[in-house]
Nucleic acid binder design. Structure first.
Length: 569
RNA sequence: GGGGACGUGGUCUAGGCUGGACUAGGACACCGGAUUGUCACUCCGGAGACCGCGGGUUCAAAUCCCGUCGUCCCCGCCA
C-alpha cells in the first residue's frame, strides 16, 4: 500500500485505511490510550494507540491505521480535524535520548547544532530554509532556461583566479610541487565560455575564499554566476536581470518587486548615503552644508580644517541626551573625523556649535537636512570621503537604534559607475576585478588620471546588502594588457598568469558582460535569517571547522609523502 | 592579526558584580510508577554537574586574576 504524507490528511480522508511512516514527534501516554504526533516531511498528524507501545522522541515508525474524524479537533494543526486509529505499528529505528530537542523551538549552542546537524535540520525553521533555497534555485533555473541560458559546469580544480582573496590550494600528486587552486569564482571560465559561443551562460556554483568568516561569509559559498555575449552597456543587461530578480522573489517568497529598479551612481550613493551599498528602506539623506558656514568663519575648528561639511538628519533623534551625543562624537572623531557636531530641534534649537555659530546658520542647516521638531541633525566636518562614510555608518547605526528601518520593505537599487581603480598600497588596484571594462568616454583618462576613470560595473544592492556584482568585460587584448600595465602587472607576469585567457581574446571574442549573485545571502534575506549558516545545510564555524565531520583534520604520513609534502613542526 | 560577549547535568538556564548556609536551584529531556481523549497531557518518585581546561590569589573560588581551548559578533581581511 502506498504511503501517505502525515501532514496531508484532511477530513475528506475519513474512513480511509492508510500507511504512514515518520519520526515520533511527541508522545502523550494516558494509560489506556496513547497519542503520538507523527512527523514526516509533509507535516504532523496525531496517532491513537490503544495498546501501548513504548516510543521515544525521534524513533522512526511505520503504522497502518484508519483515518477518523476527531471529537475535539486541534485548530493549531492542519491535520487537526482527523487522527489515525492505529491497527499496526512497527518500529523501524530507535532513537537514543537526544542531545538537542527537536520538538522544541529553543536553540542550543551553535557547536551542538552543527555537531548534530541532522537533528537540527529536522526542525521547521531549517526545513523551511532548505525548501526556500530549493525554490529560489529552481526559479533561477526556470527563468534563465526560458531566456536561452545554458548552465555549464566549470572546474573546481583550477588555477588561482585574481579575485584578491586567499586561495584554497590542492596539492597535485601527478605534478609534485604544483597545486591546483579552488576557484574564488569562475570568472575567466565564464568569459571563455561566451567566447566559445555559449552566448548565454549561467551556473549555480560553489566558490572558495580562504578568508576570515562572518555571519554572511563562509569559506565555501554559492554564487549564481552568469554571463552574456554581445553586451556593451550595462543597460542592455539590466532588464533581464531585473526580470530574474523579480521572478525569484515572487516564486520563492511571493513578494512583488517594482520594476525597473532605480539606478544610483556610485558618487551619488556615497554623497547621499555615505555608502556604496545604501539601505534605501528609509530616508535620512546626507546633505552638503559647507556653503552655509561663513567664508571667514570665526570657528577655529573649522577655519583651517574645513574640507567637507555634511549633515545627517536623525528623525526623533532630539531625544538623545547630551552625553549620548558626546559619546557618538567621540567615537566618530576617533575614526578620523575632525568634528561631529549636533543640532537639536526640541523647544527651539540648540547645538554643540551654539557658541560659535549663529542661530540663523543652525536653522539653515536644519532646514537643508529637512529636520523637524523632535529631530536631530549631526554635522560632520573633515576630509572628503571620511565625512561621508562616517555619516553613512551613523545613518545605519542610528536608524537601527531608533527602529527607523521598516522590516517589511524591500529596497533594490543598481549602484553604477564605480571607479575602475582604487588606491592600493603604493599602486592601483581594481575596484571590481581586472577584467572590468572602463567606460568608453573615460578611456582617454586611463593613464593620465586613472582614479577618475569610471567602470562599466554595477552592484545590485538589496536593503543595504550587496547582493550581486558584475560588469561589462574587456574583450580586446590591447585594452586588457593596458589595464594590466596600469595595475602593475607586467607583460611577463600577465602572460604567466593569464596567458591562456589573453590568447582566448585573440580569436574573436565578442563583447560581453555578466554578474554574480551571492545565493546564500539572497536566500538568507528572503528567509529573514541573520546568518547564511541558517540557509546552508552543513556550514562551518567561525574558525572554518565542521563540528559534524571534524574537518579540517590531519592526514596520515603516507598521504603527505605521496604528495611530496612535509609539515613544518 | 586585533577588540568584545559567552562557556554551569543530555538541552536551555539561575547563581557570578558584592568569594563563605551552593550539600550548585529551576525547566525540558531521561528512568520508574499512576493515568481511556490528550495535543507543550497531567500527577508521584528517581537518577544525572567535580560549574570548558590549566594555573594563580585567598583560611575559603562556579564566583576574583592570568593563560588556554571552544562558540558567536565586530574591525582588519574578503565582492
Amino acid at each position: 500500500m502506498r504511503r501517505d504524507g502525515c501532514g496531508e490528511l484532511r477530513r475528506e480522508a475519513a474512513g480511509r485505511k492508510v500507511v504512514l511512516a515518520g519520526w515520533v514527534h511527541r508522545v502523550r501516554n494516558l494509560g489506556g490510550v496513547t497519542f503520538v504526533d507523527l512527523r514526516d516531511a509533509s507535516g504532523i498528524v496525531q496517532l491513537v494507540l490503544r495498546n501501548g507501545a513504548h516510543l521515544a522522541h525521534e524513533d522512526v515508525v511505520r503504522v497502518t491505521g484508519t483515518v477518523c474524524p476527531r471529537e475535539a479537533p486541534n485548530p493549531s494543526l492542519p491535520t487537526g480535524e482527523i487522527e489515525i486509529e492505529v491497527a499496526e505499528i512497527e518500529v523501524l529505528s530507535r532513537a537514543k535520548p537526544l542531545p538537542l530537542p527537536v520538538a522544541d523551538e529553543g536553540s542550543p549552542s551553535e557547536e551542538t547544532r552543527l555537531r548534530y546537524r541532522y537533528l537540527d535540520l529536522r526542525k521547521p525553521r531549517l526545513q523551511r530554509n532548505l525548501r526556500l533555497r530549493h525554490r529560489a534555485a529552481l526559479a533561477i533555473r526556470n527563468y534563465l532556461d526560458k531566456q536561452g541560458f545554458v548552465e555549464v559546469e566549470t572546474p573546481l580544480l583550477t588555477r588561482s583566479t585574481p579575485e584578491g582573496a586567499r586561495d584554497f590550494l590542492v596539492p597535485s600528486r601527478l605534478a609534485r610541487g604544483s597545486f591546483y587552486a579552488l576557484p574564488q569564482s569562475p570568472q575567466l571560465f565564464k568569459q571563455i565560455l561566451v567566447t566559445s559561443g555559449v552566448e548565454r551562460y549561467f551556473q549555480i556554483v560553489r566558490c572558495f575564499r580562504d578568508e576570515d568568516l562572518r555571519a554572511d561569509r563562509q569559506p565555501e559559498f554559492t554564487q549564481l554566476d552568469l554571463e552574456m555575449a554581445f553586451l556593451e552597456d550595462p543597460e542592455e543587461l539590466f532588464p533581464l536581470l531585473e526580470g530574474l530578480v523579480a521572478h525569484v522573489f515572487r516564486e520563492a517568497i511571493g513578494i512583488e518587486i517594482d520594476l525597473p529598479l532605480p539606478r544610483l551612481p556610485y558618487a551619488e550613493a556615497l554623497a547621499r548615503y555615505g555608502s556604496d551599498k545604501p539601505d534605501l528602506r528609509f530616508g535620512m539623506e546626507i546633505v552638503d552644508v559647507i556653503d552655509l558656514f561663513p567664508k571667514q568663519s570665526v570657528l577655529a575648528v573649522l577655519q583651517d580644517k574645513i574640507g567637507v561639511a555634511r549633515a545627517l538628519p536623525v528623525p526623533g533623534g532630539a531625544a538623545k541626551s547630551r552625553s549620548q551625543l558626546a559619546k557618538l562624537a567621540e567615537a566618530a572623531e576617533g575614526q578620523g573625523l575632525d568634528l561631529l557636531a549636533w543640532v537639536k530641534l526640541s523647544e527651539g534649537i540648540s547645538s554643540s556649535l551654539g557658541k560659535h555659530v549663529s542661530a540663523e546658520i543652525l536653522t539653515a542647516i536644519a532646514a537643508r537636512a529637512g529636520a523637524e521638531q523632535g529631530d536631530l541633525v549631526l554635522v560632520a566636518v573633515g576630509e572628503g570621503g571620511v565625512v561621508e562614510t562616517a555619516l553613512g555608518d551613523l545613518r545605519l547605526r542610528l536608524a537601527r537604534d531608533l527602529g527607523l528601518i521598516p522590516r517589511d520593505r524591500w529596497s533594490l537599487v543598481w549602484v553604477v559607475d564605480f571607479p575602475l581603480f582604487k588606491e592600493g598600497e603604493g599602486h592601483l588596484d581594481s575596484e571590481h576585478h581586472p577584467f572590468t571594462s572602463p567606460r568608453s568616454e573615460d578611456l582617454p583618462l586611463l593613464e593620465r588620471d586613472p582614479l577618475k576613470v569610471r567602470a562599466k560595473c554595477y552592484d545590485l544592492v538589496v536593503n543595504g546588502v550587496e547582493l550581486a556584482s558584475g560588469s561589462i568585460r574587456i574583450h580586446r587584448r590591447e585594452l586588457q594588457e593596458r589595464i594590466f600595465r596600469i595595475l602593475g602587472i607586467g607583460g611577463e607576469e600577465a602572460e604567466q598568469r593569464f596567458g591562456f585567457f589573453l590568447r582566448a581574446l585573440d580569436y574573436g571574442a565578442p563583447p560581453h558582460g555578466g554578474i554574480a549573485f551571492g545565493l546564500d545571502r539572497w536566500v538568507m534575506m528572503m528567509a529573514g535569517e541573520p546568518s547564511i549558516r541558517e540557509v546552508i545545510a552543513f556550514p562551518k564555524t567561525t574558525t572554518g571547522a565542521c563540528p559534524l565531520t571534524d574537518a579540517p583534520a590531519p592526514v596520515d604520513e603516507g598521504q603527505l609523502r605521496e604528495l611530496g609534502l612535509r609539515l613544518e613542526p
